[in-house]
Design a protein around this nucleic acid. Structure first.
Lengths: 216, 216
DNA sequence: ACCTGAACACCGTTCAAGT
DNA sequence: ACCTGAACACCGTTCAAGT
């Protein structure tokens, strides 16, 4: 064969099959050789379209991020954060095996990516001091990623917790919706509201102190 | 050589050198062959002491966890959570390259480990409903692990944020201590306090509803 | 420009063999 | 019981060669 008239591979094709492998058999099952064989091609062929395996994973991460909705900030940063986190969480909910990868990337490229992030920018535009905005955005991000790895998954919790003894009549069933993730998110946002208030008053204090020392 | 009179390897020796490699060159640099050569031995020899590489990583994770202080719960769950998180964070602060591994483990063995966790137990003993306790413990855990990966590291944030423009006189310098991590933790705990109150009143409500329908 | 086949330098792990 | 040497079945990646 060597070179067909029309290319049988493309970045999007490779990227989608990579995600499919991750979904089906986990991140550890994603191999350049396996990815290639799934596309009916040799492993080396993939390097005509991606520089290396990491670039493939970048493409997958980017595609997953496409589903994330950063537009809710028009109705306040709380709403924006909640919308963003929920869409991020539900995007990952369909691809739980991809969460570890995003976790690894949030930590690797984290610094630069996190700061130039739209969520961070939106927080700053809503009056968050830059540093605290990074903290807030990162905290929410890790909360989402942690939740998406099923660590707080209600079903698994029920398997392990002696739930029958604590709640013999199953009255807490209504606390399944909203899921644990939403509860944790609410907790964090509630705390962030208080923090923002304090950060602002700290800023005002500093400003007063500054004009006083400038007057002296 | 083949077999020396006294064994030249031991689990603790291997485990400590594994951590040293991770510290020096990152998780990706930890190889059975490299670990062995550092110990002056062949790779196959390691399998006399550990079933596989994963078992070595387990040992490293366990050693890091030894430094974590879960005893602060005697002075209230807020204090306990804070003490635990801070000790966890500072333990990881000396081994930032190990954080990704713990992140991966928190997600893999997560379900079972998280629930039987001492933190979770302590929260339940302080009146948290089991399910919410899992949520709270997991949220704090991921916050710590996220922070430990340097994603919120103040120095890196300053490199990227246009901080000079926002704060030309450097007045916010005092906000470096406490670090972003502590702020995020405070936010979360504040929110958790409110959540616990609501969870308790929800429980009381349910109990009232139950006795009413039992009377009917 | 795009795919192949073969190779390179690695992995984790196994196992008979030595002491 | 513990370590060696060699092997097995994998990796990611490179590269000349084909069309």
């Amino acid at each position: 064969m060597a070179r067909p008239k029309e290319a049988i591979l493309s970045q999007s094709l490779i990227r989608d099959q990579a995600l499919a492998i991750i979904d089906e058999d986990g991140l550890g099952a994603l191999t350049m050789r396996r990815l290639a064989s799934r596309l009916g091609v040799q492993a080396a062929s993939l390097y005509s379209h991606f520089a290396n395996k990491d670039a493939v994973l970048d493409a997958v991460a980017e595609r997953l991020a496409k589903r994330i909705d950063p537009a809710g900030f028009d109705a306040g940063w709380q709403h924006g954060l909640r919308t963003w986190a929920n869409s991020y969480y539900s995007a990952l909910h369909w691809h739980p095996n991809a969460a570890p990868m995003l976790l690894a990337r949030a930590q690797a490229s984290g610094g630069a990516e996190a700061v130039t992030d739209r969520v961070h920018q939106s927080l700053v535009e809503h009056g968050w001091p830059p540093r605290q905005a990074v903290m807030a955005a990162t905290a929410v991000r890790f909360l989402v990623l942690g939740a998406a790895t099923d660590a707080m998954d209600a079903r698994r919790i029920d398997e392990v917790t002696d739930f029958a003894a604590a709640d013999p009549l199953g009255e807490q069933l209504d606390t399944i919706e909203p899921p644990s993730f939403t509860m944790a998110l609410d907790c964090l946002i509630r705390g962030l509201e208080a923090e923002l208030g304090e950060a602002k008053s700290r800023g005002a204090q500093t400003r007063r102190r500054r004009s006083r020392s400038a007057a002296a």
